[in-house]
Design a binder for these strands. Structure first.
Length: 426
RNA sequence: GGAGAGCUGUCCGAGUGGUCGAAGGAGCACGAUUGGAAAUCGUGUGUGCGGUCAACGCCGUACCGAGGGUUCGAAUCCCUCGCUCUCCGCCA
């Protein structure tokens, strides 16, 4: 959510910046008028309330002195009715204004390259050697089926399409990766481990920006008005919703493993094979709460933490600075990390690291005070995948495949795999 | 799922219709005292919104779990919901 005061002061400037995004910003059109109406109504209603408070006091005095107050009471009755009417109007205006503000995307940071779509994202760096195979390489969906470490058919029988059973060393690999990632972030990168709820309420989804615009992307528990989390970002960021943190609290850094649930509405036909796009997948998430002046340095730090995992696993990747057209709704700046997938002969997103500045903090009302008597300020929030586990499995399977159909286990994972060096070799 | 109790400021806790943003205490901050500290004393100590100001600030308004209602006036009375605790049931 943007600051209404900024919109008041520089509507044209904000409109200019937002127009470079690939987002609907028509809500901007109504903001000025609604804001003006709102302030006029507030002044009217507060003036009446002030009067009512004064006169109510006088009525109290009169009653004590046994004077007749019926005339004044009758008059106040009208005033109260008027207040009620104006308050109702105000409530409607504020509802519209809030909705408009909640549907306006974040302002891109000045470092963000201007561009239309994913073609215009800018590669910042690339790491690692892409493997070359002296044999015919296979896609991970064929390898996992041949190795009998994942079962897509039975998952679609039991649930539906875009679900999977991991089996045997496949399940073990998934679990090993989760543990390796969590251990690394907690022990080496200084994050506090959190295991969050997998369902959240509507306020939480609104706080991080999934709602109100993207309700169709989420799975909903209708009876409770709960949502299955699309990422641990939602519960973890909302942990501090409606809180005022102290100077010493910041920065806060959490890492959380969770299953993630996405309806993938609008993605029909994309990545239909394999582990790349599932309705349920595992992810290790990094979340940071920082002071405004630190957030861009912390974005670099957070991104490097995600990169560490890929480097330790020996998976080639590149880092992209996402352009204005591909930034998404909530981010002010975003790096995507893409891992090399031999079957795609291309890089595929495996992590997305964003600085939201105060966009989420304003929605979720997460503030801090520099000193006891300082004014409250909004914190900056950041998050990134560290990493998407299913896609990491796919990348390992494909990049580490051997001529005999087995898959080598990266060195750092072997302790987590009971010392095994290969999947598919006895 | 059933029955009961509760939800007040950073914390504890008083307050059952008007003078209550809210007693009292603790904590915290600043000041006094001290060689220094403890103790003591004094002062201060929430948030949002609107207006005003160059600014410190000032004025108004709202907030006692959330939302509605009654009333000239609600922390206080009524209704709905949420959460916490206790007991019963069920359950991993």
């Amino acid at each position: 959510m943007l600051d209404i005061k900024v919109l008041r002061q520089d509507m044209a400037g904000v409109r200019e910046k937002l127009s470079k995004r690939n987002e609907d910003i028509s809500a901007l059109d109504h903001v000025e008028e609604l804001d003006t109406q709102r302030r006029e109504l507030i002044q009217q209603t507060e003036e009446l309330k002030s009067r009512r408070n004064t006169v109510s006091q006088e009525i109290s005095e009169m009653k004590k002195e046994k004077k007749d107050a019926s005339d004044v009471i009758a008059e106040m009755k009208k005033v109260s009715a008027e207040i009620k009417k104006l308050d109702e109007e105000l409530r409607e205006i504020e509802e519209k204004l809030d909705y408009a503000l909640l549907t306006i995307p974040n302002i891109p940071h000045e470092d963000v390259p201007v561009g239309e779509d994913e073609e215009d994202n800018v590669e910042i760096r690339a790491w690692g050697e892409k493997p070359s195979f002296s044999f015919e390489k296979k896609a991970h969906w064929d390898l996992v089926t041949e190795l009998d470490i994942a079962d897509f058919e039975r998952a679609s029988k039991v649930t539906g399409s875009r679900f999977v059973f991991y089996k045997g060393l496949g399940a073990r690999l998934e679990r090993a990766l989760i543990n390796f990632m969590m251990d690394t972030h907690q022990d080496r990168h200084g994050y506090t481990e959190v295991l969050p709820p997998y369902m959240v309420n509507r306020d939480s989804m609104t706080g991080t920006g999934q709602l109100p615009k993207f309700e169709e992307d989420a799975f909903q528990i209708q009876e409770e008005d709960y949502f299955l989390i699309p990422t641990a970002e939602v519960p973890v960021t909302n942990m501090h919703r409606d809180e005022i943190l102290t100077n010493e609290d910041l920065p806060k850094a959490y890492t959380a493993y969770s299953a993630c649930f996405r309806s993938e509405a609008g993605s029909a036909g994309r990545d239909t094979r394999g582990l790349i796009r599932q309705h349920q997948f595992n992810k290790v998430e990094l979340v940071r709460f920082t002071k405004p002046e630190d957030s861009y340095a912390e974005l670099e730090t957070l991104t490097s933490h995600a990169e560490t995992i890929l480097q330790e696993l020996g998976l080639p990747y590149r880092v992209l600075n996402m352009c204005t057209g591909d930034l998404g709704f909530t981010a002010a700046k975003k790096y995507d990390i893409e891992v090399w997938l031999p079957s795609y002969e291309d890089y595929k997103e495996i992590s997305s690291c964003s600085n939201f500045e105060s966009f989420q903090a304003r929605r979720a009302n997460i503030r801090f005070k520099r000193e006891a008597k300082s004014k409250t300020e909004f914190v900056h929030t950041l998050n990134g995948s560290g990493l998407a586990v299913g896609r990491t499995v796919a990348a390992i399977i494909e990049n580490y495949q051997q001529e005999d159909g087995s898959v080598a286990v990266p060195d750092v994972l072997q302790p987590y795999m009971g010392g095994r060096t290969h999947i598919g070799r006895d």
